[in-house]
């Protein structure tokens, strides 16, 4: 990827992350940490790409490990966040 273009993406993404969190009530800190934890679970996609190009047994083993860990990050992050936020839902009436 074009290095300078990536730099722009880095900058804009950093601002986006900062702005989204800046005005969050304390009660949502824990679910939000958990929710952002889920989002970086997208690392599983990167792990899949690497495993898809692995061509020695060692690379396959590390790739397998990476995909399993990434999948656990995504799945676990989702379940835990959803369970916490489900409890907030009803109290909004």
């Amino acid at each position: 990827m074009d290095g300078l273009l990536a730099l722009y993406i880095f900058m804009l993404a950093a601002f986006t992350g900062y702005e989204i969190i800046a005005k969050v009530p304390v009660i949502l800190h824990t679910p939000l940490m958990s929710g952002s934890n889920f989002i970086h679970g997208v690392v599983v996609v990167g792990a899949m790409l690497m495993l898809g190009q692995a061509d020695t047994p060692a690379q396959q083993a590390i790739g397998f490990f990476a995909v399993a860990l990434g999948a656990a990050n995504a799945a676990g992050g989702y379940v835990v966040t959803e369970r916490m936020l489900a409890m907030f839902k009803k109290k909004e009436a």
């Binding site: 990827m1 990536a6 993406i9 880095f10 993404a13 950093a14 601002f15 986006t16 992350g17 900062y18 989204i20 969190i21 800046a22 800190h29 939000l32 940490m33 952002s36 934890n37 989002i39 970086h40 997208v42 690392v43 996609v45 990167g46 790409l49 690497m50």
Partner: peptide, 30 residues
């Protein structure tokens, strides 16, 4: 988050970059 963002750059995958860096920034503030 930052690690995912950087590896996203290495893989040339903007989705990883965006998700990783957004979480990196949000997590730092948190």
């Amino acid at each position: 988050g930052l690690a995912v963002g950087f590896e996203g750059y290495v893989l040339g995958n903007p989705a990883l970059i965006i998700a990783g860096i957004v979480v990196g920034a949000a997590g730092t503030l948190l």
